[in-house]
Design a protein around this nucleic acid. Structure first.
Lengths: 136, 136
DNA sequence: CAAGATTGATGACTCAATCTTT
DNA sequence: AAAGATTGAGTCATCAATCTTG
């Protein structure tokens, strides 16, 4: 599994970097924001969802903000917190990158498998995630 | 899959680092050498097997060599090449680390699954690896 | 010139310390 | 005192350039 993942990550990083100028982690942050209510999340929650340290997310969000893909608004409910918000430009960039992303996943993992195997893999991986809720 | 792998890698890195003072990449290099004929491999081949760049492996091997876990012998067949060799100390360190490694894998991936699911997962992942031979 | 290995420069991450707000 | 976010220091990876040998 680690070999498969490493291969996926390398290919994703290379292709997303070359075609869309974003890293896998940046893609992950964008897609996490896109799935969140109102397309926004507090920095801490976003860091946990994207499996990043808070310091790491601060810098990553800074990069995305400089490029206009994300905005950081002060949280109205808590003056300590900031909410990362996906901008329209971010939404657009994500849509483009998602095409590249999906093609790579299809090619690397789905291609050599039958439809039943893909379904089984999804189910099994889902059970692993549920069985071990963010233990780290 | 990427989430599962990320969780495994973080936990492996944390535990191997704390208990055995080695990183996941270092563990991977040691285990790759252990599986190789005569417990040795040319630097280039080792880098490819461990999914590292040649520059990255040079430094990693340097760290392991300083700690006596690996040796670098000139290749008798090709004066350009070096062969990384697993030492007795490296073999011993690997045996210890493997216990930690196996326990983590069992806990994170195998625990929430039935025996059939584990078998199916292994088979499916194997097919993915065979279906896409080192495309990157 | 190509291949094996190393080195220098750069980039992104983590951890720990810090500052502000709860 | 604890939580949210940022910053500084340190580590380890990659890429490109270099040196040596085939």
């Amino acid at each position: 599994m680690l070999q498969v993942s490493s291969r996926m990550l390398r290919e994703l990083d290379a292709q997303l970097g070359e075609r869309h100028r974003i890293s896998v982690n940046e893609f992950d942050v964008l897609i996490t924001l896109d799935n969140a209510p109102d397309r926004q999340l507090r920095m801490t929650d976003l860091a946990r969802a994207a499996m990043l340290s808070s310091g790491g997310l601060t810098r990553l969000a800074g990069r995305l903000e400089r490029r206009g893909l994300v905005r950081r608004d002060p949280d109205p409910d808590d003056a300590r917190a900031f909410r990362a918000v996906l901008t329209a430009a971010g939404s657009h960039a994500l849509a483009e990158a998602r095409i590249t992303h999906d093609a790579i996943i299809s090619r690397i993992v789905a291609a050599p498998l039958s439809a039943e195997e893909v379904a089984g893999l999804e189910r099994t991986l889902g059970r692993i995630l549920d069985g071990e809720p963010t233990s780290s």
